[in-house]
């Protein structure tokens, strides 16, 4: 690292900030009861929670990709009235306290919610189901995918797409052969971040889905509950979450540098200068 170009105090503050983030994780690791670690994290309830978490987070990520890619494309490649407002609203779950998100979901899809009676008429009962967990996770994770993909779409610009179109490629061909391959790294890193956010989801799940082993009690909820009686188990499970999170962030970082790797020439970014 070449620190020579920066004032020393900037480096000092950066180190302090880094310690602020890393130290608590170290403190957590120091509290782990290592001799009991394996039995603690392989107990029936822990395994059920981990498997449920992985299953629901993958499903939530799939939902995020399914809906998030079109959302990012619409935001980056079209212009319509109120687009800024729409973008802010889409990013709302990012700043909303998750518990509030859970309450909002409850008032929408709950038994007495906005769509509740319609859904139950159709025989769909979401409350207290694994589907409710996936919805909570997708709700909070979606902005991560939309945000990173929209940014990438804007920075690669529309130049290649325009060339493709003049050469006779249809809209679907342009999207499939030019746009998506260009932003694939951002799509992957966005999906990985969404997965990580889904894995850590707690507040919305607790509020909207409840907590039942094997059905709705994901790993964060299990940590929260274990802490009541067995703090050692809670710490051990927390460490598992930390390890998964670090691995996920690592993957996202390896992919990320490529995302903005092909900066398009200025004039092409028409959408970005508003």
């Amino acid at each position: 690292m070449n620190a020579g170009v920066l004032p020393r105090w900037v480096v000092a503050l950066a180190v302090a900030g880094g310690l602020f983030v890393v130290l608590p994780v170290v403190a957590l690791a120091l509290r782990v009861d290592w001799p009991r670690f394996v039995p603690l994290v392989t107990s029936d309830s822990a395994r059920a929670a981990l498997l449920l978490s992985l299953r629901t987070s993958l499903s939530a990520t799939a939902l995020c990709v399914l809906f998030g890619v079109p959302m990012a494309l619409v935001l980056a490649r079209t212009a319509f009235r109120g687009q800024r407002l729409v973008r802010s609203l889409v990013l709302l779950p990012l700043v909303l306290p998750p518990v509030v998100g859970g309450i909002a979901l409850l008032y929408t899809f709950g038994r007495r919610g906005l769509l509740g009676s319609t859904l139950s008429a159709a025989g769909i009962d979401i409350a207290f189901s694994t589907a409710a967990v996936v919805m909570s996770q997708a709700f909070v994770a979606l902005p991560f995918l939309v945000l990173s993909l929209e940014g990438a779409l804007r920075s690669v610009g529309t130049r290649y797409e325009a060339v493709g179109a003049t050469l006779g490629a249809g809209r679907w061909t342009v999207l499939r052969r030019i746009t998506l391959p260009l932003v694939l790294p951002a799509l992957v890193s966005g999906a990985v971040l969404s997965f990580a956010r889904a894995l850590g989801e707690f507040g919305a799940t607790l509020t909207f889905a409840g907590s039942l082993e094997g059905t709705t009690r994901t790993l964060p909820l299990e940590v929260y509950l274990q802490r009541e009686t067995d703090p050692d188990a809670a710490v051990a499970l927390s460490l598992i979450l930390v390890v998964v999170a670090v691995a996920v962030v690592g993957v996202a970082h390896r992919v990320r540098p490529l995302a903005g790797g092909a900066p398009a020439p200025g004039p092409a970014r028409t959408g970005g200068l508003r």
């Binding site: 207290f128 889905a209 409840g210 907590s211 039942l212 929260y224 509950l225």
Partner: peptide
């Protein structure tokens, strides 16, 4: 046979 086992009585009441 509960549909949910909450971590606090407030969460039960909320449901």
């Amino acid at each position: 046979e509960p549909v949910s086992e909450e971590s606090s009585v407030a969460d039960v009441l909320g449901k």
